[in-house]
């Protein structure tokens, strides 16, 4: 379970203070798939970076499966799998070496390492594990980052725009994996620009704009609240973020 309470983060750009996230509070239940939507610069990645410990919040609390992720960062990182917007990989390593490195750091037992090859087969990069990452396309890098996030069987999965760059089959497989993980009781939090994916996949969606959470509810509930029962998520999103002219 993920719990964010009064989360705030601001940056100083030259002399101006920019509020990237303002008093954001939300909860994602165990076994839930939560979609985090918002226009560019809305504060999605900043929120995610605070959740995984790449940024410190100015205020507020982050609790992941009962662990205070700000005070007890290492314990929370151990149970999180993270897929960043730009895959964080070491280019000169071979794909397989990189995944072995991640397995070593997360202390994945030797007997469980065949998961690397299983996932590599699922995402169709098994044959490429012996190649240097520098030769990978963006999609292959994304697949490697996804495998790295999944291989230690995390309780909570946080993904920042994971669909971008994936081919249709890999995107389908990823969505399938996410559903399967949810069924196993894992908590999944992911940001996306692809409304269709959020609409079809997520149990609930949260919409953030200018650092503020505008809504967090199941899609059907959002439609009912807005009074547009026939509206698509895209239309609701544009309405909530005031981007309909």
């Amino acid at each position: 379970m993920i719990s964010l309470k009064d989360l705030s983060k601001s940056y100083t750009k030259v002399k101006d203070k920019v509020d990237a996230v303002k008093k954001l509070s939300l909860e994602v239940e165990k076994g839930e798939l939560f979609g985090f939507l918002g226009p560019n610069g809305a504060g999605k990645t900043t929120t995610i970076k605070m959740m995984i410990g790449l940024l410190n919040p100015d205020q507020g609390h982050i609790v992941i499966n009962g662990i205070d992720a700000v005070k007890n960062r290492l314990a929370s990182k151990k149970i999180i799998g993270f897929v960043p917007e730009e895959p964080l990989l070491y280019d000169k390593m071979r794909g397989g070496d990189f995944l072995s490195f991640i397995a070593d750091v997360y202390e994945v037992d030797s007997s469980k390492r065949r998961k690397i090859t299983e996932l590599a087969e699922l995402f169709e990069i098994r044959e490429k594990l012996g190649d240097s990452i520098s030769s990978y396309s963006h999609g292959m890098r994304q697949k490697t980052a996804i495998i790295a996030a999944l291989l230690h069987d995390p309780e909570v999965l946080i993904l920042d725009e994971p669909i971008i760059g994936l081919d249709p089959k890999a995107a389908f497989n990823l969505k399938d994996q996410l559903k399967e993980l949810c069924a196993k009781g894992k908590t999944i939090f992911f940001s996306t620009h692809v409304m269709e994916v959020a609409e079809k996949l997520c149990h609930r969606v949260g919409i953030i704009n200018k650092g503020e959470l505008l809504a967090a509810a199941p899609f059907e509930e959002l439609k009912a609240k807005s009074g547009h029962l026939g509206a698509s998520l895209e239309e609701l999103f544009l309405e909530l973020t005031n981007e309909i002219s």
Partner: peptide, 15 residues
Amino acid sequence: SSGRGQYRLAQTIGI
């Protein structure tokens, strides 16, 4: 260009 073939998983070496 295509891959170099099968990759054998590396042994556990510790953190």
